[in-house]
Write a protein that binds this DNA or RNA. Sequence first.
DNA 1: TCTTATGCATAAGAAAATTATGTATATTTA
DNA 2: TAAATATACATAATTTTCTTATGCATAAGA
Lengths: 112, 112
Amino acid sequence: MANSKLYKGSLNTIILKLLDEGGRMYGYEITQKVKEITKGELKITEGALYPALHKLEAEGLLVVEVAKVDNRLRKYYKLTEQGVKEKTNRLVELEDFIRNMEQLVNPKWTIN
Amino acid sequence: MANSKLYKGSLNTIILKLLDEGGRMYGYEITQKVKEITKGELKITEGALYPALHKLEAEGLLVVEVAKVDNRLRKYYKLTEQGVKEKTNRLVELEDFIRNMEQLVNPKWTIN
DNA sequence: TCTTATGCATAAGAAAATTATGTATATTTA
DNA sequence: TAAATATACATAATTTTCTTATGCATAAGA
């Protein structure tokens, strides 16, 4: 995914959130959107993305809809009802994670 | 490490930062410190911590110093000069990561 | 005395990524 | 127009990092 190992584990959260915003997106579109938003700092690799999409679909969080545009295949994914709920959970987890990491590396106050 | 997969990849950064603050710490102490700072939300497992410490030592980022306290063994770790540099790098990566994630899940502004 | 806390360690397995491929069409550039 | 790049999907082998399950040993508390 990136030069930094920190992104490990965050791909699903990113996918769910982008699909929540975008309504429906296809794989390649997701890679481009992420690159755009992070100004090229985060590049989702295909080897990570496609298996992740398949897994989320198998878990019932996404549904796929195949389309043909300009004679090329596209698989549009969108959140299921369950996917929307899971997205919310993941975002809460992300907020908790960030808060804890901030606290660990840049403690605002200390007891001792 | 935690209920959330997001922490994957962040252990080394946490270790380096805590050692930078604490001067020198031993493994068990690190687990307790992390638990304390995150109010029990993040628990470093021994199966993750000890191999990580050994690896950081093998990479030359840490040095170990064995001590015996109350007839029990302790292995104090501290940053090497290289470890201090690496700590700085990791913290920059962490800041970038957090900034990118914030931007992805909670974009402040959009172009379109 | 039994449980919990302290303190280290490793091995087997799972999860999630990287890296390397593979296929195919469309568009841009030299 | 030929070659390179962009678009669009996919999977397999390997690596990294963690969880889970052990194991050993001493100290302290119930």
